[in-house]
Write a protein that binds this DNA or RNA. Structure first.
Lengths: 217, 217
DNA sequence: CTAGCCTCTAAACATGCGTTTAGCAGCGCC
DNA sequence: GGCGCTGCTAAACGCATGTTTAGAGGCTAG
């Protein structure tokens, strides 16, 4: 998996911005992006118009990259798109950028999250139909929960680990994947609670009695 | 559940800071905290020494509040401490503060997360011993995963919703609880994946064959 | 050769933020 | 009344950051 090398100054700047914003968050100074790109801050503003416009350009670019990767067939119900991207060293900056962009909040972030949720809805629906994933009482809520908690967790890890360069960023994401894979698979496979009592109580509470399969238990 | 009203200017400031930082994050200007407390920014620096020292004072205070609440017996394996606190309107600013403090990163945040993980280790160990929660292959990793993803999710929601005052903050947390309770209980009760194949493959991969109960399946 | 355009920079500017400084008001004591 | 202390403020200060400005260098066309 190799992405096209930047050929214009604007592309070089945009890639540098994805790296810097992914490592340090959207609060990183424009001067840091400029230093990473080997240009002046003034040049960035000349080409993009403002820091906010650069942020927007990065969002659009990263979404386009993700869309292209999806088109190449990175679909597999066992691991989220984010996790799959994070396994590829060259894509780690994109994953980090996504997490940092949503962490920053605002309209951009809400759009980004909605995109990720919509994507995941597709995968999960297919997986349920294929019998790989259990059906849910509320598929929309479940997918939003899974997507947001994964994004939020990753963003939190970035803040806690504060990678200073690309290598530290890759190491950070490696550690994150290593430490979460087993607990996640365990939870996905066998759950956490030993019985259904709390789920059933909650379903009664919201006026939605246990589905038919409960009758068999 | 009622917390003691502040009786000194320092306490007033500290409470105001918890509210403002919880709503807007640790990047909120000191002038905003000053306005919320009804004093000048200079007074805050006079009493606490610096913005960073105020942040530290808030951390210590919130941890102490949480410790007191734990002592009052808010223990129940089905809902994390954070969730229980979030159900009480008066404690919502504390929950938001915790999420925002960890979101900011740094040594404070790591300490905070470690406290929450240590707390959760206690509850979960008790719940496993009582047969309420299923045992895990790696309890430490599981508890860290559950704690961090809950914290990260909450922090993300705060960033996305950007509450402007206390009422909006309470509404934000209500929405968060309402939208996550069912998916969480569902996941905790029945998991996500329809079978154990992926978990077993992973356990083989890390050189830890499936435990004895797999033999029964 | 000159003018215009493009690429780009360094420095200046405007603004926001944490912190420092100067000084006021009130109180109690001698 | 004067002094010292406490509580407090408004304004000034120093710095970081996003943005603007002035101008240099290179290239091309007439």
């Amino acid at each position: 998996m190799r992405l096209a090398a930047p050929s214009t100054t604007a592309e070089t700047i945009r890639e540098a911005a994805v790296r810097v914003f992914g490592r340090e968050g959207l609060g990183a100074p424009l001067r840091s992006v400029a230093a990473e790109a080997g240009v002046s801050a003034g040049r960035i503003v000349q080409l993009f118009g403002s820091k906010d416009a650069l942020h927007r350009a990065c969002d659009e670019h990263v979404l386009a990259v993700v869309r292209d990767l999806k088109r190449e067939g990175m679909t597999d119900a066992g691991a989220s798109l984010l996790t799959r991207l994070a396994m590829v060293d060259g894509l780690v900056p994109y994953v980090a950028y996504i997490a940092r962009s949503v962490q920053a909040g605002g309209e951009h972030a809400r759009t980004f999250v909605q995109h990720m949720v919509d994507d995941a809805m597709g995968y999960v629906a297919d997986a349920v139909a294929a019998g790989v994933v259990r059906p849910s009482h509320d598929e929309g809520a479940r997918v939003r929960y899974l997507t947001e908690s994964a994004l939020g967790h990753l963003a939190l890890r970035l803040s806690l680990d504060a990678p200073r360069d690309g290598d530290e960023l890759v190491a950070c994401l490696r550690r994150h994947l290593d430490s979460t894979t087993l607990p996640l698979l365990e939870l996905f496979t066998q759950g956490f609670l030993a019985d259904r009592r709390m789920l059933d109580e909650y379903l009664m509470y919201v006026g939605d009695p246990p589905a038919r399969e409960q009758a068999q238990a």
